[in-house]
Nucleic acid binder design. Structure first.
Lengths: 329, 329
DNA sequence: TTGTACGCGTTATCAC
DNA sequence: GTGATAACGCGTACAA
């Protein structure tokens, strides 16, 4: 059923070495090369990756490890990684950890035993397995979360994101802007708080630290956080949702409470393809998720290609999206 | 760096055959097995998948080929496939085709040269590559779209889905219920039209065929279709969105036109984790995407395990979701 | 430029 | 139950 280089060699009347060379871009006389290609096509031959991997010690597959396949932010990243990878001849395996360290470790182990070329990971934390994977000299690019792993990183300027979202609300006249952010152990969640604080400071306004609530960067947690925020009795007339899913949760609670924009200010860090279903005016801070994926994959491929040197960090900038709906045609 | 069974065998004082047997669950005396396990742990050994694949003729990875990673419907499927696969010891490679036949073919080729155990595919159409992949006797389960490939299928009762959504609107008193569906070459899009038509028929109502518009099952196409529907001048007081993304597009156009529920009836076949952001009362027909993924993977694994016989078809049922927001706690 | 021969790490088939 | 040993399909010294 499946043909191998021997079959092709026989059909083309050359040695297997020649066939191999043709498929690896090495010098072969034109006529022989043509004979090989013809035979290969005729036999529907395609090189066996397992054998190649076994021989070469690494495959042309890279793993992308993300916390949640159902979050558009991460799938956008995935597309970016895929784009770059494909261009360079690599396939991408998408691995979903559900925020569980154990699953992350499991995928790392698979990456090892499958001899994968490298890993792009949205790290959950500095887990032993991740640390040792990096330490073992394998190729890793961390993305979205700062962790001092000693690996290359592609990050977001989260402080700027927090500042932009909060600033827009303050500039719109709101004075008590709350923040529903994520788990404080995540640099992304943490930095957005710093940005939130900075927005007040830059305008000479006083900060009320009780207006920060930590959710889980998911819908359910954001709902709870938003309820808590409204329940404290503290004065509040606007809120920044720390990420896209938090935006949904927070908005649901607000809508139910009848406190909707524009009376109550609302901004989301991150984007939802779905935001435009809501007629309310929502401030959105766009995050270059896809671009991050592209750059991460590029860095990884670069390393695989033998690029040495210490860990590099690339930080991308967010941008305020126009309030106008973007699909006007 | 990476140890192999020889190292383990030496460390444990046994033959490599014994090591192999331990790792494949074959009978080995308890004490020797323990020695092997200890040595393996000490050496941080994990079996080389490339070698195993080369030898066994197939790997423990299955490919899931979907048209759009950013569509929650397909990512929900992906989670289902992942769940089943993982339980059976398989990894899943997520492949995104963007509705392009060529990309689908490419992934199929990769599946071959990587010796993947099998493929779960949301087929674009009966392309030559897909047909020949199936014909070559490899394991395939088609999902979501009916195509007569000669492979196992996991489908949805799309006629029922169309009927339910349309019926709910008719029963709510609307009399001119339109339909924004997908490309007519997709069985899913086509069958939903049949269901739409049936809902009228069952109630003894007359059908106005001009109220069906074919989009592309994506947001942009649905916007156009919805505009077209409103622009015909035909009487229309409600609409069924043929899938989740169409729901967004159609709703955007409606909202802008000021024709919103409940005055204008609106139903979506499919679900959006995001629908609840909208205060409008929207009828939703829930689709068991995750379940479909689970069943598809189960069928595939079953085949891989040697289950013979002709192609099987499994059809799952949709269900009307309560209009109440489902996150009430 | 081309061909021969060996090894990559594992599983499976033998004998024992 | 256990151990030698022959594949699996490919890449690459090395020799020609």
């Amino acid at each position: 059923m499946t043909s191998n280089i021997h079959d092709v060699a026989a059909a083309a009347g050359v040695s297997i070495a020649t066939v191999s060379r043709v498929f690896n871009g090495q010098r072969v006389s034109p006529d022989r090369a043509k004979r090989v290609r013809d035979a290969a096509r005729r036999l529907n031959f395609s090189p066996n990756r397992a054998a190649r991997t076994l021989r070469r010690k690494h495959s042309e597959v890279i793993a992308l490890i993300i916390p949640d396949v159902e979050n558009p932010y991460f799938t956008a990243m995935a597309r970016g990684v895929e784009d770059s990878a494909q261009r360079a001849g690599y396939s991408v395996v998408l691995c979903n950890t559900d925020d569980q360290d154990e699953k992350e470790s499991q995928y790392l182990r698979i990456a090892v035993s499958e001899n994968m070329a490298g890993v792009v990971v949205v790290p959950n934390g500095p887990t032993p397995d991740l640390l040792s994977y990096v330490a073992s000299g394998r190729h890793v690019v961390a993305i979205d979360r700062q962790l001092d792993l000693g690996a290359d990183e592609v990050l977001l300027d989260n402080v700027a994101a927090g500042r932009m979202a909060t600033g827009a609300l303050l500039d719109a006249g709101h004075r008590h802007v709350g923040l529903v952010t994520g788990p404080s152990h995540l640099s992304s969640a943490h930095d957005r708080v710093i940005g939130w604080r900075a927005a007040y400071g830059e305008r000479g306004l006083e900060v009320d630290e009780t207006l920060v609530e930590h959710g889980d960067f998911r819908v359910a947690g954001a709902r709870e956080a938003m309820r808590a925020l409204l329940g404290t009795g503290a004065e509040i007339d606007a809120v920044v949702a720390g990420n896209n899913l938090s935006g949904i949760g927070a908005f649901q609670v607000l809508a139910r409470a009848g406190t909707v924009p524009p009376a109550f200010g609302f901004a989301i860090i991150g984007d939802l393809p779905f935001t435009t279903m809501v007629s309310a005016r929502i401030t959105r801070v766009g995050l270059p998720a896809r671009e991050m994926g592209i750059r991460a994959a590029d860095m990884l491929i670069d390393r695989i290609g033998g690029h040495g040197g210490g860990p590099r960090t690339l930080t991308l900038q967010p941008e305020i999206l126009p309030v106008e709906e973007d699909w006007t045609v």
